[in-house]
Each structure stands twice: as structure tokens, then as C-alpha cells.
């Protein structure tokens, strides 16, 4: 679209033609960072920091300014208490619980992750613990068929904790390598639904110590500042261990994750770049930052 191209082009020409760092350059940078959903506070912080360095004469080359900003953003994205890779338990099934607000792409992401595990030769059990949304089970079953894996489910309206508990039972008995639990989308502000999520987690831990080993929060790249609130409240409720950022195949940049990684020290594990089974990538901070600055697009 017009907006996107002009931004990308502007970013390219922004640094190339310039000999010095001036107020215009900072204004344009501000627009680029805010338009990428980085948020006004993080943007101001980044730029104020750079302005101070320019004043101290520690920074004078526009190209260098860009490198400094990228480095800083990179450090936000990499600020993590968790290892970047998924950590499997030493024995028994590796249980992943997938959570997030409505419609972000949880079920689809599960379908894609399943394929990755299958390709790595692992056996996967899918668990339909979204017993609420219309045809949620049918949707997961289709992803199960596409991956040729079993989907554990009960009737609509069943207690999701019971579904999860029984699934762990089965996974332990049948020695599955990986169990992925799909949960219903819920807004982070809905206290009773967040309680339900805690219960699903607790119940699995009762059946298998340490489970779930990974709690993956799915975020939609088109989301703005509200993603911070989502991440905080889901983290408070169940403790998030990793993020997946979906819908990066559009024009949204998903810049808000930089604030989330930084504030909550949670790593981004995957990005979603489409609706198909292969449209999943491991997160690469450099690609992400380049795209954010309009320097390059993601590898599709």
C-alpha cells in the first residue's frame, strides 16, 4: 500500500542521503518507531537517549545512529530470563499450553508447531481444551488430520480442566513426546476466565509434575499498546514462558513486543507469517528489527 511503501522508502533514503543528525531526522525516526507500534514511551526513551549522545558529540553519523538504535532494540528483544529454545523435561511428555486473547491465532499456531515436531520425528498429541467457542474442536481436529496426529476432545461445553487432565493421563500412558493444549481465547481482563486458565494449568501439574513445561502466549502483530496489558495479566495468572507473534505477513510491524520482552523478560519463540501449515518461523531479532525499520522484509 501507499503508506507502507512510502515509509519503507523514506527509511531507506532517510539515512543514505544525510550527512548530519538533525531535528528532522529525529522527527522522522519518531514517526517510524511509533507507526511500528513501539509505543510512545519506548520511542521517546530511545530517541532521548540518542539525542543526549548527539549532544555529547558521542554520535554524529546518521548511519551510526541507526546502528545504535537497532542495537538498543535488539537488547530489549533479547532481555530474557528464559532460554531462547524450548526446554524439554528430562523424561515424560513435553507439555505445551497455548493461551491468548480471542482470535490471535492460537489454534492455527498449534497446527503449525505440530508439523515442526512431527518433522523432527516426535509424536504429538493435541488437546482440545477450548470447549467453548463454536466449532473450536472441529477446527483443531482438522489441524490434527493435516498433521496426522490424534486430537483428544470431549463434547462441547465440557470442563476444559477435565479434558486436559485426561489428555495428560493418555500422553503418559502412551508415551507421547509432545502434548499441545489449545485453550479458548479470553480477554485478559475477565477474571473468572483467567481463573479457569489457572485451574487447567494446576490440574495438569497434578497429573504430571512440572507440566505444563511451556506456556506460550500468542500475540497478534496488528495489536497496539494493549498487548502489554495482555502479556502482563496472562503472565500474572499462569506465568508465560514464551511468546508467538502471528500475522506478520501483513503490514503491521508488531513493535510492541519489544516493550513486552523487555518488561517481562520473556523470549519470542515463533512468528506466524500466514495461514498455512508451513507459515511459521523461529524468531530472528535482526530480521524483525530490519523489518521494523522498513529495511528488509521477512523471509517468506
Amino acid at each position: 500500500s501507499k503508506t507502507k511503501e512510502s515509509l519503507v522508502h523514506r527509511m531507506d533514503t532517510l539515512f543514505l542521503g544525510r550527512k548530519e543528525i538533525d531535528a528532522d531526522l529525529f522527527d522522522e525516526l519518531e514517526e517510524i518507531l511509533i507507526t511500528a507500534d513501539l509505543g510512545i514511551n519506548t520511542t521517546m526513551e530511545l530517541l532521548d537517549d540518542a539525542r543526549r549522545n548527539v549532544k555529547r558529540n558521542a554520535l554524529s553519523d546518521p548511519q551510526e545512529l541507526k546502528i545504535v538504535l537497532k542495537e538498543k532494540l535488539r537488547s530489549f528483544l533479547m532481555e530474557s530470563d528464559q532460554p531462547a529454545e524450548l526446554v524439554r523435561p528430562e523424561s515424560g511428555p513435553f507439555v505445551i499450553m497455548v493461551v491468548g486473547v480471542n482470535g490471535v491465532g492460537k489454534t492455527t499456531t498449534i497446527g503449525k508447531i505440530t508439523k515442526k515436531f512431527k518433522q523432527a520425528g516426535q509424536s504429538v498429541l493435541l488437546v482440545a481444551a477450548d470447549t467453548f467457542r463454536a466449532a473450536a474442536v472441529a477446527q483443531l481436529k482438522i489441524w490434527g488430520e493435516r498433521n496426522d496426529v490424534t486430537v483428544v476432545h470431549q463434547q462441547e461445553g465440557a470442563d476444559p480442566s477435565a479434558v486436559a487432565f485426561d489428555a495428560i493421563d493418555l500422553a503418559v500412558a502412551k508415551e507421547y513426546d509432545v502434548v499441545i493444549v489449545d485453550t479458548a481465547g479470553r480477554l485478559h481482563t475477565q477474571v473468572n476466565l483467567m481463573e479457569e486458565l489457572k485451574k487447567i494449568k494446576r490440574v495438569m501439574g497434578k497429573r504430571l509434575e512440572g507440566a505444563p513445561h511451556e506456556i506460550l502466549l500468542v500475540l497478534d502483530a496488528t495489536t497496539g499498546q494493549n498487548a502489554v496489558s495482555q502479556a502482563k495479566l496472562f503472565n500474572d495468572a499462569v506465568g508465560i514462558t514464551g511468546l508467538a507473534l502471528t500475522k506478520l505477513d501483513g503490514t503491521a510491524k508488531g513493535g510492541i513486543v519489544a516493550c513486552i520482552c523487555r518488561e517481562l523478560s520473556i523470549p519470542i519463540r515463533f512468528i506466524g507469517i500466514g495461514e498455512q501449515i508451513d507459515d511459521l518461523r523461529d524468531f530472528n531479532p535482526d530480521d524483525f528489527i530490519n523489518a521494523l525499520f522498513g529495511d528488509e522484509t521477512h523471509n517468506h
Binding site: 511509533i34 511500528a36 507500534d37 485478559h188 481482563t189 496488528t222 495489536t223
Partner: peptide, 30 residues
């Protein structure tokens, strides 16, 4: 909950289809 990109998306849908109205969802959140 859409961020900055809302303009790009809405503009294109309106350009292509001349939409007649908008529905905003998930407004019960924060």
C-alpha cells in the same frame, strides 16, 4: 485492540469495496 496499522487496513478495504460501515469488536476489554 488494533494498533497503528488500522489506517492502512481500513483504507484499503474501503478503497476496494467502498464499505458502508464499521463494527468494532472486543470492546469489553481494557
Amino acid at each position: 485492540m488494533t494498533g497503528q496499522d488500522a489506517v492502512t487496513v481500513a483504507e484499503k478495504f474501503n478503497q476496494d469495496l467502498e464499505i458502508s460501515g464499521v463494527v468494532l469488536t472486543k470492546m469489553e476489554g481494557d
